[in-house]
Simulated scan of single mutants.
Amino acid sequence: MMVGHALLAFGLAALVAQRFWSTERALAFGVVAGVFATVPDVDMTYAVIGLAQAGFGGVWEMTAAFWGSSHLVHRAVTHSLVVAAIAGPAFVLATRNWWQKSLSAGLLSALVWVSFVTSGFLGAGVMLVFVVVGTVAALVADSRTDLGPGALLLAVVFGLASHPFGDVFTGAPPQFFYPLDVTLLHSRITLLPDPTLNLLAIFGLELVLAWFAVSVYFHLRVGDVRKQLREHVHPRAALGAGYALAALVIPAPTLSVSYQFVFSVLAVGAVGVGPQLHPERPFPPVRFRPVRTPAAWLCTGMAAVTLGVVAYAGMYLFA
């Protein structure tokens, strides 16, 4: 759900903001919310230690080491509504005048100190990275958009606070009230009892969020979402259905072992950047032109991946 966090925050924030502001301002608000919805995942930086320990082995061994190391701190220090309520305003204060910057530095330093007391050097280190990345993101957002302090605060807090809720379906549930010793969820939420179908459902949910974000963008920019999707999805996306054959080759994926499935099905999206058959004049000849816009690359690739997942699920169920 790493990408899904940003997509959901962007889509919801921009869709609500367009009721009150211009299209450009609503899009900027959504982008800032989406950026801050990914900031809590900077705790994954610790996982590089796992890669160093694993060495340059096979790709699957290195991937397992990466995720195994990340679980030591992932979804704890930075995945907290309490932290979001403090860090969000502090990030915005860092963009204001000198005394507000001083207050921001005090609040953010307090977060690092509390993390050290609660989780030791590792927790403090993760929080320090979170504080630095969040501050830089806020400064960039303040300089590159016309969002005022109030709008920027809403976008930042919404992005940070929305992140933990997207992690309730995979891995260990977030510590929503860190550093307080309060547990909201003891285990992740399972959508389907079959582990492979459960993974496919979660992957499908992320695809739904991707289409939602794209639809919101087209809605704000043009208005006619269906027409835009028809224009930007090339028929060759149907080639993604061929991924169904992967069900006969790779082991059935689960949340514990998903790398082969995830990496290979995402590779199907390369269909989006292939050449587009375009007749310059009646046969012969027929020349090839690349797909014209990045939006067409993205939409065609997403459509291919979506068809690939659906076809894979069908093969898994009925083969």
Results as ranks from 00 to 15, higher is better:
Val225Arg: 03
Leu209Glu: 08
Val225His: 04
Val216Asp: 05
Ala237Val: 09
Leu200Glu: 02
Leu205Lys: 10
Leu207Thr: 00
Arg226Trp: 14
Tyr217His: 15
Val208Asp: 02
Val233Arg: 09
Lys227Asp: 15
Phe212His: 08
His234Met: 05
His219Ile: 11
Leu199Met: 02
Ile202Gly: 06
Pro235Gln: 03
Val233Gln: 05
Glu231Val: 11
Gln228Ile: 08
Val225Ala: 02
Val216Ile: 14
Leu200Arg: 04
Val222Pro: 10
Phe218Leu: 12
Leu199His: 03
Val208Met: 08
Val214His: 11
Val222Thr: 15
Leu220Gly: 12
Leu200Val: 00
Leu229Phe: 12
Tyr217Asn: 11
Leu205His: 09
Val225Asp: 00
His219Met: 14
Ile202Asn: 03
Pro235Val: 05
Phe218Tyr: 15
Pro235Leu: 06
Leu229Pro: 02
Pro235Thr: 02
His232Ile: 06
Val233Cys: 00
Glu231Gly: 06
Ala210Pro: 07
Arg236Ala: 12
Leu199Ile: 03
Ala210Tyr: 09
Ser215Gly: 13
His234Ile: 09
His234Asp: 13
Tyr217Thr: 15
Gly223Lys: 04
His219Ala: 15
Val225Trp: 06
Leu209Ile: 04
Gln228Asp: 07
Phe203Arg: 05
Ala201Ser: 04
Val208His: 00
Val208Arg: 01
Arg226His: 13
Leu207Val: 01
Leu205Ser: 11
Ala210Thr: 06
Leu209Thr: 08
Ala210Ile: 03
Leu207Tyr: 05
Trp211Lys: 00
His232Tyr: 09
Val214Gln: 12
Leu220Phe: 10
Ala210Asn: 05
His219Trp: 15
Asp224Cys: 06
Asp224Val: 12
Asp224Ile: 13
Ser215Gln: 13
Gly204Trp: 03
Val225Lys: 03
Ile202Asp: 01
Arg230Lys: 12
Gly204Ser: 03
His234Ala: 11
Gly204Thr: 00
Leu200Ala: 02
Leu220Ser: 03
Arg230Phe: 13
Gln228Trp: 10
Phe218Asp: 04
Phe218Asn: 04
Phe218His: 12
Val222Leu: 14
Phe203Thr: 13
Leu229Val: 09
Arg221Phe: 09
Val208Asn: 01
Val222Ser: 15
Arg226Pro: 11
Ala213Cys: 05
Trp211Asn: 01
Gly223Phe: 10
Val216Ala: 05
Val216His: 07
Val208Ser: 07
Tyr217Gln: 13
Arg236Pro: 08
Leu209Gln: 10
Arg226Leu: 14
His234Ser: 10
Trp211His: 01
Leu199Val: 01
Ala213Trp: 14
Gly204Val: 02
Phe203Asn: 12
Glu206Thr: 10
Phe218Lys: 11
Glu231Trp: 08
His232Cys: 08
Phe203Tyr: 14
Ala213His: 11
Leu220Tyr: 05
Ser215His: 13
Leu199Ala: 00
Glu206Ile: 04
His232Leu: 11
Leu205Cys: 08
Leu200Asn: 03
Gln228Thr: 11
Val233His: 07
Leu200Phe: 00
Val222Tyr: 15
Glu206Tyr: 00
Leu209Ala: 12
Leu220Pro: 07
Arg226Met: 14
Glu206His: 02
Val222His: 15
Gln228Ser: 11
Arg230Met: 10
Phe203Cys: 02
Leu205Arg: 12
Arg226Ala: 15
Arg221Gln: 13
Val225Phe: 07
His234Asn: 07
His219Arg: 15
Arg230Ile: 13
Leu205Ile: 04
Val216Leu: 07
Phe218Ile: 09
Arg226Val: 14
